[in-house]
Simulated scan of single mutants.
Amino acid sequence: MLEMILFIALGGVFLSMLGLFYRVIKGPSVADRVIALDSIGISLISVVGLVSIILRTSNYLEVILLIGILAFIGTVAFSKFIEKGEIIERDRNQ
């Protein structure tokens, strides 16, 4: 019973990821695309977590942490680019 629920949850997450990929491609604004990319990262974390539960192993927990860190850094970089137009600020007075 639990395995069936986990597979249904996995399918639901995959369906939501398809909708998010559509939002990344057809998003009306850049901010919508950034939010969709962040949501894809969160969905990917949940997929890895569900697969880890299905396989009854804890070896994928480091992968979850790595994906979370990369998704956070990517979201911060995109947000900074949207706000200021550049990611790395350089001192132009020198």
Rank of each mutant, 00 (worst) to 15 (best):
F14E: 13
L15M: 11
L15Y: 14
S16N: 12
M17S: 03
L18I: 15
G19Q: 12
L20G: 00
L20H: 00
Y22F: 11
I25K: 09
I25C: 11
K26H: 11
K26G: 11
G27H: 02
G27W: 01
S29E: 15
S29R: 15
V30C: 13
V30L: 15
V30F: 06
D32L: 07
V34A: 01
I35D: 00
L37R: 05
D38A: 07
S39C: 14
S39N: 11
I40F: 08
I40T: 09
S43K: 02
I45N: 02
V47D: 02
V47H: 05
G49T: 08
L50C: 07
L50Y: 07
S52I: 04
I54M: 08
L55A: 15
L55F: 12
R56Y: 13
R56W: 13
T57I: 04
T57A: 08
S58P: 14
S58Y: 14
N59S: 14
N59P: 13
N59H: 11
Y60R: 07
Y60G: 03
L61W: 08
L61S: 14
V63M: 11
L65G: 10
L66C: 09
L66D: 09
L66H: 10
I67W: 03
A71D: 02
F72H: 05
T75W: 00
T75K: 04
T75F: 06
S79D: 10
F81E: 06
I82N: 05
I82L: 10
I82S: 05
E83I: 12
K84H: 13
